[in-house]
Design a protein around this nucleic acid. Structure first.
Lengths: 232, 232
DNA sequence: CGTAGAATTGATTATTATCAATCATCGTGG
DNA sequence: CCACGATGATTGATAATAATCAATTCTACG
């Protein structure tokens, strides 16, 4: 059974540059897997036994301080790669934030395949470099922004990264609806804040007419430009 | 003139797995370059025109918020790689913190060479993955640690990364001397703090007998275990 | 409906930033 | 070689921001 042929991220994930033969081989190594919201795929500090492509859904990567405070290290969207190839231990936990479809590979076999297929390694390198850039930009947010700047940045980035799934009226001026893949607590864990501070910032932005808070997870961005100004 | 033959990081940098012929080719692309303390090699947001290996010295990667606050995104030590291959713009500035010896490559030529030499790309991938892990660990520090935990973590990591150059008596119990490659302000910029807060934490650690502050940049770690406890 | 978990709101505290002044260190030139 | 000045570091006082603690209030779901 070749799952790759029907794969919706076949042309966006790291497998994009492989030819049919190669995809066939990779297909034999990987297997599709479904995760319910809240299910974990990786545990911080454990042996790096597997890596994966996210096909559908959103996952979080996270670590904890010794006293149990969580920090979300990254969000992984569809077509993104997940896990630590060429390494002994997984330096973070990975948990599904929504119903998620992944394509899982045993790490050892994936590593071997990657070393034998430079086009795959190249894609993986490009992705890793992009992810490193994104992570470093997030450091600027964590280290030097206040709560308002953090939340504004988060909303804008989330809107962009969810863009492919966006629905509703498009074009300039139209409010941008989004369904957040995170709870308030999780947003706090992304931004290095507490849930109360996040909540207060939402209230403030709502009162100032920047966003509309419809449900717990339904947000409309009313004034993108004003929100961008708040990131600065 | 083949500089690589005399290169002190020949076996540790990304060139480690190349054979003599390949090194010869790479040698033709790169050229050695000296940087004085404070000299810049890359500017945030500019075109990515070059990449480099650090041969000797320490450099910082940094970005700024719109209102000019700086955040150091990473420190680059000898044998580390620097710059953004396969990308249009350099997402951070790079500046020498000490007298530094680098080996610079025009990005376009480096990219081409890398694509043609999978062993180099593989080394680069491993390094990028390691750097991503390190950066993510730093996110936990920035997002969830207090000033004391941050400074303790910084001192321990710096001691480790400077270890090859360490001098003085070794072994358990012996104080670990280190020459910080950063000013107090730069330490603050690494940790997402102000210079005053960093200074106060140093004073506190000194008073508690964890470290000795000899000169502005000379620190002795007196009780590593106690310092480790402060990171938690 | 009623309930449990999530989110919001309010009051207070803690931590760190900011502002201001003083002190130390290092390099320089007399 | 020493005094001086400049820069960097420390210290102190105060303010701002976000964390913490403590109720409510939503709202999604059985």
């Amino acid at each position: 059974m070749n799952f790759c042929q029907a794969c919706t991220v076949r042309n966006r994930a790291i497998c994009a540059d492989l030819d049919e033969d190669e995809i066939g081989l990779l297909n034999n190594i990987g297997r599709p897997m479904h995760l319910e919201q809240g299910e974990r795929l990786l545990w911080e500090g454990e042996d790096a036994v597997l890596v994966a492509n996210v096909v559908e859904g959103v996952m979080k990567l996270s670590a904890q301080t010794a006293d149990g405070k969580e920090q979300i290290l990254g969000l992984v969207y569809s077509s993104d790669f997940l896990g630590r190839p060429f390494g002994q231990t997984t330096p973070y936990g990975a948990e599904a934030l929504t119903k998620t479809q992944v394509c899982v590979f045993p790490r050892g076999e994936f590593d071997r395949f990657a070393r034998e297929h430079p086009r795959l390694e190249h894609k993986l390198l490009e992705r890793t470099l992009t992810e490193l850039d994104r992570t470093r930009r997030w450091m600027l947010l964590l280290g030097r922004m206040n709560a308002e700047q953090k939340l504004a940045s988060f909303l804008l980035e989330t809107a962009d990264r969810l863009a492919p799934d966006a629905c509703g009226p498009f074009g300039e001026g139209a409010p941008r609806m989004l369904t957040l893949p995170l709870s308030r607590q999780q947003i706090a864990d992304v931004l290095g804040l507490t849930i109360e501070t996040v909540s207060r910032q939402f209230t403030r932005m709502k009162n100032e007419g920047l966003v509309e808070v419809l449900g717990r997870r339904e947000i409309a961005i009313l004034r993108r430009d004003a929100l961008e100004a708040r990131t600065r």
